[in-house]
Structure formats: structure tokens, C-alpha cells
Amino acid sequence: MSEGKKFDGEKPRFSLIPGGVLPPVINVLEFGAKKYSEGNWRQVENARTRYFDAAHRHLDAWWNGESTDPESGEHHLAHAICCLMFLLALDEPAEKPVPICKHNWQEATASGDARRTFICSKCPSQKSVSFSEVLP
């Protein structure tokens, strides 16, 4: 039997990301999506300044011994990482348009599912909600 090949030597190695750091960041993003709306950060006035300031507030709180943000219950560093990701995304060249989908949710719940599942017919987004929640 021949040895299998995969030509990925020059591709990004996501395995270098330390384990356990992405879930709190994703939790912060989910918290923000529920509180404001998905992608809302792209439409914030003076976003660069405001997310720069917010990142520093979270870093300062963490530096001064407060690990958890009192409102979200998530780590201040996860909030700072989100702010920095927003700044990195906003730093992309202006000629590169960032699509914002006005989701067209369609239910895709299978029988026996514990939660209702919705998919957008325009983009790859999915949303899972409890049966008691109403999708906006």
C-alpha cells in the first residue's frame, strides 16, 4: 500500500492555536450577537477608536486583577481579543467590500432535534435556538 500525500506544508497551521482559548472568544462573540445583532460591530460609528478604547478597558481590568467581565461572565482577555479582531478586520483595505448578510432564515430542524435549527438561504450562517425562542 502506498503512503498517502497531502500538500499542506505552506498552509496555516491552526493547530498552533493554544487549546481552550477559542471557546471563550466565541462566547463573547455570541454574547455580542445576541445583545446587539450579528455583524453589528461593522456598523459602529468611530469603530476603530471605540474598539481600541474597549480593548484597553478590558486589558486594564484584567491587569488590575479582575479576570471576568461582570456583564457577560466571560474573561476580560476574551473581550480584548474580540476587540482586537474587530480592529484587524477594520484595518483591511477599504476597496475590499465586507458583505453583511440580511439573513433569510429558513427552518432546517429535523425531527427529534433538541433545538430548532435555522439556515440562511443567502450565506452559510446557521442559528440554533430553543423551541421556546422566537427567531427575529
Rank of each mutant, 00 (worst) to 15 (best):
D113I: 01
N40M: 09
H103G: 03
S15K: 04
K122M: 15
H75F: 02
A33S: 14
E66S: 12
G20W: 00
V44F: 05
F7S: 02
V44N: 06
R57S: 05
G73W: 01
V44A: 09
L135C: 06
S121A: 15
I119H: 13
R115E: 08
H103T: 04
P97T: 05
K96T: 10
V21A: 03
S121L: 15
M1V: 10
H76T: 11
M1H: 10
N46Y: 00
V25R: 02
S128Y: 12
L16G: 10
P97F: 00
N27F: 00
S37Y: 14
G4H: 07
W105H: 06
L22F: 10
S111T: 14
A55S: 15
A55I: 09
K6C: 14
S15M: 05
K5F: 07
W63F: 06
G112E: 04
V28I: 01
C120K: 12
C123Q: 11
K34L: 07
E95W: 02
E3G: 04
I81L: 13
D113Q: 04
L135Y: 11
W63H: 11
A89S: 12
E38H: 14
A80G: 09
Y36T: 08
E92R: 08
G20H: 00
D113C: 10
I119L: 15
R50H: 01
R48M: 09
E107F: 02
L88W: 07
L16H: 14
S37R: 15
G65N: 06
I100R: 08
K34C: 13
R116V: 09
H79I: 04
A61H: 01
K35T: 13
K6L: 15
F7A: 02
P136I: 03
S130T: 15
P12F: 00
S121P: 11
L84T: 05
M85W: 01
F7I: 02
P18H: 04
